[in-house]
Structures are given as C-alpha cells and as structure tokens.
C-alpha cells in the first residue's frame, strides 16, 4: 500500500511527547508516527501529510495546551471532511467532566486515556482504534494482521465476503 497511514501525537510537553512516541514504537513499521507540540503545528502537520497523499489513522492529543486546546483541535479535525475518519484519542491529566462530554459529543472522541498511562494500556487502545480504522476504511486487513487485532480482522474477512479469485 503506497498511501501511508500516520499516527499523530500532539503534546506540548516535550518529555511527555517523547514518552508517548517511544511507547508507540512497535507500530512505527506499519504506521509512521508524526508529532506536534501545539494545535497550530498539528494542523500544519496534518495538512502536509494529506498533501503528500498520505492520511491520518489515529490522533493522540493532549488536552491542555498553549493556544487552542486539545478538545477544540479534535473538534476542528472532526469537521474536516478529509480527516474526520481518523480515530481520535484524548490523552489528558486533568479534563473535567464537561470537557469530556463536549469532546465525545462534538469531536466524536473514540477513546480517552488518563495520564499517567501504562504502555500496555496505550498499546491496547491504539491497537483497537487502528483496527477500527482499517475496518471502517475497508482497507485490506491482511497486511495489518501482525500488528493489530488479528481475531477481529479475521472476523471482518469472514463476514465481508473477501473472495477467492
């Protein structure tokens, strides 16, 4: 597949961004990772990725950031035709209930990770969300069997009439 599916990590604290990216290393062979330190930078990165003919499969976004906050950024992504398919995960240390509800309603937030996270938890969420993405986009599931949720991908192949020719 020539069209690359990116994971975008948006986090303003550099140490935290680095930790997130490091924990996602195992996905990098299939889903290249890009990072941004602010919503504004993230928008530029998103634009560049699509301009290069690639796409974004998953956004992991911090909540409290200078400038536009994470929830608003995700809402903006959601309203964009091109990018609204991307799975959206809010990574946050301090969201109140109101913000979360807003994110779920308006950005159609797919998941919510509370800081501090564990590597297992993060991998589980990312695996599940990327699996959802691949199935929702009807991409060939076979090339992702080793990195994503193979049972769900097989079940998808069983029920989606992929045939023998």
């Amino acid at each position: 597949m020539d069209r690359k599916i990116f994971i975008l990590v948006v986090e303003d604290e550099l140490e935290v961004m680095e930790a997130l990216v490091n924990d996602l290393e195992q996905f990098e062979g299939y889903f290249p990772i890009e990072s941004a330190n602010s919503s504004e930078e993230a928008k530029q990165v998103v634009e560049d990725i699509y301009a290069a003919g690639n796409e974004i499969g998953l956004v992991l976004c911090d909540h409290v950031m200078p400038g536009q906050n994470g929830v608003d950024f995700l809402i903006e992504l959601q309203t964009n035709n091109q990018q609204h398919n991307a799975k959206k995960v809010l990574v946050t240390g301090q969201a109140g209930l109101e913000d979360t509800i807003q994110a779920i309603n308006n950005a159609q937030l797919d998941h919510y990770i509370a800081k501090p996270w564990t590597k297992e938890q993060l991998e589980e969420v990312v695996t599940a969300q990327l699996t959802n993405y691949i199935m929702a986009q009807r991409y060939n599931p076979m090339q992702y069997m080793m990195i994503l949720d193979s049972v769900r991908l097989l079940e998808y192949m069983r029920t989606h009439k992929i045939t023998d020719h």
Partner: peptide, 14 residues
C-alpha cells in the same frame, strides 16, 4: 468461499 473459511478457521487456531 475459501477465503472466508480460512479467516474463520484462523480464529479457531489463534
């Protein structure tokens, strides 16, 4: 379909 059968059987052996 051979493919659907394989997909189902792989979930059995995983």
């Amino acid at each position: 379909s051979n493919t659907a059968t394989t997909a189902m059987m792989m979930t059995v052996i995983l």
